[in-house]
């Protein structure tokens, strides 16, 4: 539980590097580092990674969307088969979550090769 929490926090902190030029897929290695440092069981690792990636992406998106008063997300929703503003936000979150989850799992399983296992 504690490791899941740390994983999420670390992803949120290191993920800020994407504001400074780290490519968006840098989320995968960041989540892997978190998974390596805080070993977890498969599902909790997937879930923590997902939560970290999801929160990271959706908070930034939500921040921009709020300032924009939802003008652009409404247009993008129309572009993608009529998604609602919230569905557009969720899409960004879920994509971040998937990358975070898979990255975290890869990191945790890499750690287990070196004896780092969940408590």
């Amino acid at each position: 539980m504690k490791n899941s929490f740390y994983t999420i926090i670390l992803i949120l902190i290191l993920g800020q590097a994407s504001h400074f030029g780290l490519p968006w897929w840098g989320l995968a290695p960041i989540a892997a580092i978190a998974g390596w440092l805080f070993p977890q069981r498969t599902w909790s690792c997937l879930l923590a990674g997902f939560a970290g990636g999801f929160l990271l992406w959706i908070t930034v998106a939500l921040w921009l969307d709020t300032g924009n008063e939802g003008m652009l997300s409404a247009r993008i929703g129309t572009l993608f088969m009529g998604l609602s503003r919230w569905a557009v936000l969720a899409t960004s979150g879920v994509l971040g979550g998937l990358i975070g989850g898979m990255g975290c799992l890869t990191g945790t399983w890499a750690g287990s090769l070196f004896g780092r296992t969940a408590a």
Partner: peptide, 19 residues
């Protein structure tokens, strides 16, 4: 590309200019 487009750091969100 969905990741390129939907990520909030370089994707379309960056074009969401403050109202």
């Amino acid at each position: 590309a969905l990741g390129d487009f939907f990520n909030p750091f370089t994707g379309f969100w960056q074009n969401a200019e403050p109202a």
